[in-house]
C-alpha cells in the first residue's frame, strides 16, 4: 500500500464510520477511486469490498475511472429546465460529439447533467471545472468550450 493511503487510513483508524471522508480524500488525491484502494480499505477496516463499493457507488460524487481534464455539468433543475437548459445540453452533446455522461476520446471533456446548483434565479446554469456560469445560452456555452480547446 502506498504511504499516503496508509496515512489517510491511519487518521481514521478508530472510526470506521469515516468511510465517506476516506473515499473523498482518495478521490481528491487521484481524481477517482481505483479498485486497488477499495481492497486496501477493506483489509484495513475488515469490512467487505462490496460494502465499500455499495457506499461509493450510491453517491454521484465518486467515480471509478480517471476523470476528464475538464468537467462540464449542465444544470437541469426545474428553473433551468423551464428556461431551456436541455437545449444547452443538446448543443454541447453535438459540439463535443458525446452523449450526456460520456467523456471525449481524448479524455479532455466530460459532459454530465446535474439536478440543481441553487443558482435558479439566474438560470440556465452550466458549471465548467467548478466555475458557475449563469444566464447561459448554447452559444455562450460553446464559446467557453472553444476557449478550453485552445
Amino acid at each position: 500500500m502506498e504511504q499516503w493511503l496508509l496515512e489517510i487510513l491511519n487518521t481514521h483508524k478508530n472510526n470506521p464510520d469515516a468511510l465517506i471522508p476516506i473515499l473523498q480524500k482518495i478521490q481528491n488525491k487521484l481524481g477517482y477511486i481505483p479498485e486497488k484502494a477499495v481492497g486496501h480499505i477493506s483489509n484495513f477496516f475488515k469490512i467487505s469490498a462490496s460494502k465499500i463499493f455499495g457506499v461509493a457507488s450510491f453517491y454521484s460524487q465518486f467515480r471509478f475511472t480517471k476523470p476528464p481534464k475538464h468537467s462540464i455539468k449542465v444544470c437541469l433543475g426545474t428553473a433551468c429546465y423551464v428556461r431551456a437548459g436541455a437545449e444547452i445540453l443538446d448543443s454541447l452533446e453535438k459540439e463535443l460529439g458525446i452523449t450526456c455522461g460520456g467523456i471525449t476520446p481524448d479524455k479532455k471533456f466530460g459532459l454530465e447533467s446535474v439536478s440543481c446548483f441553487g443558482c435558479c434565479a439566474l438560470s440556465p446554469v452550466v458549471v465548467i471545472d467548478n466555475k458557475v456560469y449563469s444566464r447561459m445560452t448554447p452559444q455562450k456555452a460553446k464559446k467557453e468550450i472553444k476557449k478550453l480547446r485552445k
Binding site: 429546465y81 440543481c116 435558479c120
Partner: peptide
C-alpha cells in the same frame, strides 16, 4: 441538503 431543484434560500 437543499436538493430540491428550484430552491436556493438555504444557500
Amino acid at each position: 441538503e437543499e436538493g430540491e431543484p428550484g430552491t436556493f434560500k438555504d444557500r
